[in-house]
Amino acid sequence: MNVSISDLTAIRARHPEAIADAAARRARRPLVGDGGRLMIVAADHPARGALAAGGRPYAMARRADLLERLCTALSRPGVDGVLGTADILEDLLLLGALDGKVAIGSMNRGGLAGASFELDDRFTGHRPEDLARLRFDAGKLLLRIDYADAGSLTTLEATAQAINAMAERQLPVFVEPFISRQVGDGADRRVRNDLSVEAVTRSIAIASGLGGTSAYTWLKLPVTDDADDMAQAVETSTLPTVLLGGDIGSSAAEQEAAYEKWRKALQLPTVQGLVVGRSLLYPATGSVEAAVDTAVGLL
């Protein structure tokens, strides 16, 4: 069945069972392919209300445009798969864009950007049983720890439970840990992640020890500004790691600086690949194709 983006709403309204059918017939592949590296495009930002990209505050709110960009990225050589919430992955399923690709479900999106409860990051996305039912390949969760916020303990406990549930189903889970703190007051209050080597090292140690087994746990880590610091931090664990691309700014110079940091960090022994979202889907300069191809070239 040939499905276009303009068909999605009609299919969802009249044939919701089509999503399960598409999931059942999707061609799968191993998580890590013959090249031994992973290149994953991330698109789970909207479910946290984080819609800004490329200098535009609501860029990711245009779903048809986002899906076009994702399909373009997934079509490029060397791109292994996509990370997204249920709505996005199911749109891509219907479009046939996930055949032969790695599909990673985003699990906790309850810590809405800018909310007073942001650090009480509830699991409002994919559950382990959903990922298994839909034959997806892995899950991802965000773990922000603020030593001054009791909500972090709730997230820690829920994270450990999710790791256990994923391991029971032999599904890999990518844990994205940060040591965080809240700055500002009232409407201006924001969560800031500490990217110092000390904080990243501590976050790795905490995340690596969660759950009854780490057999299926991967780490998804930010890149520190200093290559030596990054090398020191990843020595904290033997767990396989992918690098978090993050938002790299709106200028060509910032983009090139980020690529150089990624290039150095990819040489580290535990680092297995990249997970990058907005900076590839909404590049500061050039096309989606050019940005994706450049990132793949770093691997």
Rank of each mutant, 00 (worst) to 15 (best):
L67S: 09
A23D: 07
A73I: 00
D80C: 06
L98C: 13
R169G: 11
R190A: 14
D130S: 09
G49I: 06
S203L: 07
E168K: 05
T238R: 08
V41M: 02
V173I: 11
R181K: 15
V223T: 09
R76K: 12
R63L: 11
E260K: 09
H45P: 04
D225M: 06
A231E: 14
M166P: 04
Y282A: 03
G114V: 13
T217S: 15
A53T: 02
T270R: 10
T201K: 03
K220C: 00
R181A: 14
I204S: 01
L89A: 11
S237L: 03
T236Y: 12
P269G: 13
L274C: 07
T159M: 07
V242T: 04
D185R: 14
A207Y: 03
L94G: 03
S279H: 01
V288P: 02
D137W: 00
S237M: 05
E129A: 12
L83W: 03
L153M: 09
V183T: 07
L219E: 02
F136A: 01
L195K: 14
G100Y: 13
R189L: 15
G297W: 03
D149Q: 15
A253C: 12
C71V: 11
D130H: 13
L156G: 02
R62A: 13
K101R: 10
L281K: 04
E90W: 11
R14S: 08
A42E: 13
A18G: 06
L31N: 03
F178S: 02
A64Q: 15
D99M: 08
V275P: 00
Y58A: 12
L281P: 02
A18F: 11
M1S: 09
H45D: 02
S279C: 10
T159S: 08
L195R: 09
L143H: 05
S214P: 05
G55T: 01
P30D: 06
T270G: 07
D121R: 01
V3S: 04
T294C: 08
A167M: 02
A231V: 11
P269Q: 12
S116F: 12
G297S: 08
P128D: 08
V288N: 04
A257P: 05
A43W: 01
G125S: 04
T201M: 09
L67A: 07
P46Q: 12
V276W: 12
T154Q: 10
A42Y: 05
G277E: 00
E235M: 10
I40W: 11
V296Q: 00
L266P: 02
L94C: 12
A199Q: 04
E289F: 06
G249I: 04
G151R: 04
V82T: 05
G211Q: 00
E198F: 09
A64E: 13
A165T: 05
Y58F: 15
H126W: 15
S152K: 07
E17I: 05
E260D: 13
Y259I: 12
D91F: 06
